[in-house]
Design a protein around this nucleic acid. Structure first.
Lengths: 201, 201, 201, 201
DNA sequence: CATGAATGAGTCTTCATTCAT
DNA sequence: CATGAATGAAGACTCATTCAT
């Protein structure tokens, strides 16, 4: 389902009626894969030159598909972002809002742990016209819905907003990343965040 | 006092006991000033060439004093770091450990908000032989002392360690930075962090 | 008439007698229009890629019609060049050869002022087989006729040839272009050129 | 003498009190030589990369001395420009203003024939602050002086200004260049220009 | 010790041209 | 024939680092 949603969104934003030739699509995908791999490998410089070489395509091809580094980042992130929105909606649909919030935090953290680019987009200020801006709005809507219920149930302080959740989870991810891999810390920091969201007694 | 601490720790470890000629010291200070200014201006690239030019010294001079960018960053930070240690000790000396923790979080956050380089050092893994490693140990010792008392008093969960505090505060700072200036969020996030540190009911 | 002259000379030499399919002709024309517009807009780089995009055709199409940039330039210019030949003939037909020369200079200058590509072709050395080479010959013939009469009438020095006129007018245009728009200078430089052509007293 | 004038002007404009280290000066000169050679060879692209390679220095060195292509061009031209000013003054000092004008035209043409960059600067609109702007002013002053005398003597029309001379000579050079080498044409075009400057009978 | 000129690898970006669709 | 995606050579420019002065 998430995949389908992406399919509808992706190509359409390229341009009206340009379904992308088969080989072009293949190249595009290769570039994205390589870029994804670089990012996962901790190299966030996203040098278009290097990516082109690794993807086995000409530089020009990369530039054609992604005029700027940012465009590449966005494309890279869009797919996972859609997935994240799905998960957020699922969490928001939970019967127990407390469970929902826990789940939301865990899933969000998990996704940005895997994809640092996603974190970058989640944190970034909205810029009009970006395709991810819509996704961000979708996410915040789902989260806000969940927060409302959680506040009503008395498990979350009323002054916490959806965008606070975004920034806080990213902050926790930042803390985890700089501290090295350590399962203990993942659980602890999630606990701290969840606990901190509860209303002050 | 902080200055003295720096003098004792920094240069003496750098070279073989040479107390630094007057002009050399002046140059060193100029470079630090300029670097500080660049950082404060939001330019974290710390280009040694540019700094040299701005400081009115040759590039070579910069390299002599600070062989790597990291060395410069450390020197830059050492001063404020010493200050931070002072504040941590003061917080740890508080009668009420809860107050102490609150104060610690607030002060730490305040300092790294002003000096992004400080955050970088706080987060970084210890590397042996660095002058800041000792400072970090000092800090963690003071914090650990405070945490022990806070745990005993039942205001902090027992599985939180001093280095967790370091990373978590930096995470909060990260969350605040990416969200734009907003006093509401400073207070909220501090609250969330402090609240999250309490033992689960 | 100029158009017909072009039709006879241009395309027929390009391909083997094929009168050009309707859509092909339309594309060709579109490309020429766009190229003309670019030139008029002061962009003399004539990037085939850009032109293709602006004309709404593929790059390949442009390359099919105009294998080289020079071919495009020539095609672009052929039309006006034919017009220029007409004017030269009209000037040559004047009763008063002095008037004729004046008219010739003014008209030529006017046309190359409007169309820089025309100047480029007028100045260029003849290359065999070019469609414009014939036009250039036509032009020089008409001018030579005029010069003969002017020399006989004692209003032009006998050592001036038709191709000198071409180069000199282009030189004047060059001088005018680099000096910025200024009606005074147009008249002055034309005067100087005309005056300079007279036999030395 | 011209050389001395250049010596005084050149280094000083680099920066106050920076007499240029011996090796630096040598490199600078090498770059200039190479650039001069390229220009003379008809390559006016002045690719800093290529020049660096040919001069046997790093690209960075070229960029250090000449931040932009234009800076290089100016430096390149300054020397000859100073020479040209000398010659213009000499021409202006002639007893017979007609001889002076003839000489001026011939010398100017000769110099820009050798150095196309000089022509480019002579034609260009003044941009404030350029070192050559002063030279251009010097030149125009000398020429204006000569023109005044020539007008008084009745050998030049009164509506010709010093900058017209600049543009017209460049125009003649343009005409000569596009026409291929031909001594006949040099003399003819100079004659035409000189003749054209005379007052209309 | 200080200087800053020189180096040149590295990166970005453009664009003429080819060729699979 | 038309298309336009792909190519990759080419050129511009930056900047960390070295080393002669």
């Amino acid at each position: 389902m998430a995949q389908e949603g992406l399919q509808e969104r992706g190509p359409r934003q390229e341009g009206p009626g340009a379904p992308l030739r088969a080989d072009a699509a293949r190249n595009r995908e290769r570039v994205l894969e390589v870029a994804r791999a670089r990012l996962a490998a901790g190299d966030d410089s996203l040098q278009l030159n290097a990516i082109a070489k690794l993807a086995g395509v000409g530089v020009g091809t990369v530039y054609r598909h992604f005029p700027t580094r940012h465009a590449l980042l966005e494309a890279l992130v869009a797919e996972r972002f859609a997935l994240l929105v799905e998960q957020a909606r699922a969490a928001a649909a939970r019967d127990d809002p407390a469970d929902g919030v826990r789940l939301l935090l865990r899933h969000t953290l998990g996704m940005i742990a895997v994809d640092p680019g996603l974190a970058a987009v989640l944190e970034s200020a909205d810029r009009g016209g970006e395709p991810t801006a819509a996704l961000k709005a979708d996410l915040d809507r789902a989260v806000a819905r969940l927060l409302d219920r959680a506040v009503a149930a008395g498990v979350v302080r009323p002054d916490v907003r959806a965008d606070d959740i975004r920034h806080l989870v990213c902050g926790v991810q930042h803390a985890l990343r700089t501290g090295g891999e350590d399962p203990r810390r993942v659980e602890l920091y999630l606990d701290v965040l969840f606990g901190g969201l509860r209303p002050t007694a």
